[in-house]
Design a protein around this nucleic acid. Structure first.
Length: 281
DNA sequence: TCCCAGGTAACAT
DNA sequence: ATGTTACATGGG
């Protein structure tokens, strides 16, 4: 275990890990514990320094938390109006996380029409049943299973993870695991594609629609213009930008990408957290 | 009992 | 091309 002290300006660890983009981090006594790339990592924030205990290299931690993103520049792009500026000020320092594409894909396929608590339990069960055990400081953690480890599972064994739509979703996960594990679907390659081309590829997978595709693109494939539309964002956008009109997701997506521009995804995550927190303050 | 939850695919206009 | 519905389930 190495100890890292990483400079982190315009960064808020709590907002970043609490806003709902990741599902496997837990806060225990002032420290956040997570599993990144087969290693346990614990992090805490001391002012403008991110203190991390991990076997990961410092660069990997910087990349994971997207500490290279120039937040002031991003705020300049997405701070289009009074409301947006207010939300930015409220959650200043919230950063997108650069997740592993495979874990991100599975997580959001399982997320559909489910409360976040449910998603967390499904992801935990997948890790516990199919991932590897890691022991650290007396705690037992699990890696997120590789595609092959899921692909070899039976429908019944997958089923005990408690998917939202039962065997229907277990079948989707199995099918995706076989494609990704068998090198018939290269997630990493999508990073080189344009946003729209990568999205089209992702949506050929059964179980992946606009929302899941946009989440995977935004949270793991560096497509910061992606603007995932879920129930919360839909409600927010209709209320704040369309006078409560029952506008379609296509229209919302069109407006959001045009209005917020190449960092629309950052705007989305701030608004998502804001709306889900009830917009208080 | 009804409504909601980080939706998608199949089906109907 | 756009609108509607089945799917499946624990919690408020």
């Amino acid at each position: 275990m190495k100890m890292h002290r990483i400079p982190a300006h315009v960064f808020n660890l709590d907002y970043t890990l609490r806003c709902g983009q990741v599902f496997r981090w837990q806060k225990r006594g002032g420290e956040w514990m997570g599993v990144v790339k087969d290693s346990v990592i614990s992090v805490k924030q001391k002012g403008d320094v991110l203190v991390a205990k991990s076997n990961l290299a410092a660069e990997e931690i910087v990349s994971y938390f997207r500490l290279e993103d120039d937040m002031e520049n991003i705020y300049k792009h997405i701070g289009k109006d009074k409301l947006m500026k207010k939300v930015i000020a409220k959650y200043r320092g919230l950063r997108l996380i650069r997740q592993d594409p495979w874990e991100c894909l599975v997580s959001y396929v399982c997320s559909r029409n489910a409360p976040i608590k449910k998603i967390k339990s499904v992801i935990f069960n997948l890790s516990k049943n199919f991932g590897n055990v890691i022991k650290s400081d007396g705690h037992i953690e699990y890696t997120f299973p590789e595609p092959d480890m899921v692909a070899e599972a039976t429908l019944d064994k997958l089923g005990i993870c408690g998917f939202r739509y039962g065997k229907k979703q277990a079948r989707e996960i199995l099918e995706i695991a076989k494609l990704v594990g068998g090198n018939n679907f290269d997630l990493e390659r999508l990073k080189k594609y344009s946003y729209l081309d990568a999205k089209e590829e992702l949506m050929t997978l059964r179980g992946v629609g606009h929302k899941v595709a946009d989440c995977v693109l935004l949270f793991s494939l560096d497509k910061l213009e992606a603007f995932p539309i879920d129930v919360h964002i839909r409600r927010f956008m209709r209320r704040e930008y369309f006078q409560d009109e029952n506008i379609s997701d296509d229209k919302i997506r069109e407006l959001a990408r045009e209005y917020f521009g190449k960092y629309a995804g950052y705007a989305q995550e701030y608004l998502f957290y804001h709306e889900r927190s009830g917009g208080e303050k």
